[in-house]
Design a protein around this nucleic acid. Sequence first.
DNA 1: GATGCCGGGTT
DNA 2: AACCCGGCATC
Length: 428
Amino acid sequence: MTFHAFQQEDIKSDISRKLPDQQFLLFTTKEEDLKTAETKKLNRAHEHEKENTRSVCLLEQKRKVVSSNIDVPPARKSSEELDMDKVTAAMVLTSLSTSPLVRSPPVRPNESLNGSWKEGGFVPSSTSSSGYWSWNAPSDQSNPSTPSPPLSADSFKAFRTPSQPDDGIDEGETSNLLFDEPIPRKRKNSMKVMFKCLWKNCGKVLSTAAGIQKHIRTIHLGRVGESDYSDGEEDFYYTEIRLNTDSVADGLSSLSPVSPSLASPPSFPTQDTIRPETSCAKTETKVMTPLSRSAPTNLYLVHTDHAYQATPPVNIPGSAKFTPNGSSFSISWQSPPVTFTGIPVSPTHNRPAGSGEQKQSHTVLSSPPRVAFGLRKPRGEGKKCRKVYGMENRDMWCTACRWKKACQSIISEKEVQQPRSNILVKGR
DNA sequence: GATGCCGGGTT
DNA sequence: AACCCGGCATC
């Protein structure tokens, strides 16, 4: 499930017709429309996310945020917008993290979005007075190079921390209910959870989310005077890490290389028509999406899990190395295996991880059919070991026959005249 | 269906 | 390199 926001109505019908069913489009021209549509979108999303408890929790959470925002007039200019931006970001992240279509590039009617889709960071649009879903380049006041927290499911747990009193949710009611209580899921052993600042060249690790939020708020966001105020933006700049070797192993395995074609998302027909020049979605490994700059980077990385991982985007700092310099993070994906909906490399990529792909691989990944070449060695005319000795006397076979290779012990007259080496070399 | 063996994987 | 085996072509 992927959310896309569009401003102009004129492309609504066209795009909605072309996009996959799982993609939900949000067309807004006004702020009111945005809220209404977002609520509807959340409802729809909820229906399609029943299997994903975590996402549902988040959606529920954010829905309350939306509703509260609608009801309560903004106390100050940025309050509502920041909340909306937070919701927006959370929604996008949620959708991206849970959607198998994450491999698919977002439909980007960038021309229609007043240039909101730019190559740059995703920054909550502080200047947008209409509440658009916009992806703006990072402004001066914000972060020249904002780090990119991962989109792992665990990271979402960090979205909500006890130190966020003013995100429109009654403290202790839903937050504790939804986020603070341990979510039933598979977690290996007992891991010590730490929170690492993803700000570039920082890497501060704190044991509490509140601490890391405060750190980001004061050190990186420069909100010294409003240290108690949290609009949730800090959530994007830290991630949860586990000090456990298993998690590291998971993360590394999730970063195992695979064919680069996996990194190329499938292209929608709409992209060809809507996106003429920009190529950020086409090759996200090279050009980061706007979201991937400041908001969580590993939009695609996170969703390439298990044995069929795409190589992490090269410009994700240290994501593949898990270096302790602060730009790394652990990705532990406890959700069900995410299958690629993009261009498959091989049929095995649609299999769940750990379902015996090891054994399958050497056949599935084999070379294309050799029929067209006609280079197959003609079957030997003489009786081979198998024929002579039979299966029961397999130990009497020549090694080649035992290995299912061309028989070397019993050579027909024809093969004697023709040097064996020629036969063996052919096609090898 | 049996056989031969290529191509590729594992040890 | 030795060994093994899936799968295909041929018989």
